[in-house]
């Protein structure tokens, strides 16, 4: 039974793509980086809030692309997803928490 589970997880962890697929993902990530830089160059004309929103969305998309397809986390065993996603969510929460605490506007440690 345990051996059966092992085989299942190995089958799951060996999801592979063609090299053409990787080139496509690489091209998409390159385009996202180019758009990020282009938006940085015109940030004075689009407003700070919109600039930040677009930049965060693009960066999250880029990071997700690397993790899901280059690191193959999308089709990999759930235990790998768990040991990465839990610390990642903790890290994001801590970052936002500390930035709020030390903010000049609403922080309590300013």
């Amino acid at each position: 039974m345990a051996e059966h589970a092992t085989h299942d997880q190995h089958a799951e962890s060996h999801e592979s793509h063609s090299t053409r697929f990787y080139w496509m993902i690489g091209a998409i990530l390159a385009v996202i980086t180019a758009v990020e830089v282009a938006i940085f160059l015109v940030k004075d004309t689009i407003g700070h809030e919109l600039f930040l929103a677009i930049l965060f969305i693009l960066s999250i998309a880029k990071g997700a692309g690397v993790v899901m397809y280059f690191m193959h986390l999308r089709g990999d065993a759930r235990i790998f997803q768990l040991v990465f996603i839990v610390p990642f969510l903790l890290a994001v929460t801590l970052c936002l928490g500390f930035l709020t605490i030390f903010s000049h506007h609403v922080g309590i440690a300013g």
Binding site: A2, A5, T6, D8, Q9, S13, A77, I79, F80, V83, F84, V86, P87, F88, L90, A91, V92, L94, C95, F98, L99, F102
Partner: peptide, 30 residues
């Protein structure tokens, strides 16, 4: 756990490194 121990160890290392770099980035931003 039914997965390669070396790969699990590396993913756990990457998880800890995520917290490490978040601490450095957060400190810099503050």
């Amino acid at each position: 756990l039914g997965v390669d121990s070396r790969k699990l160890g590396l993913w756990a290392f990457i998880g800890s490194e995520t917290l490490f770099f978040t601490a450095l980035i957060t400190t810099h931003l503050i």
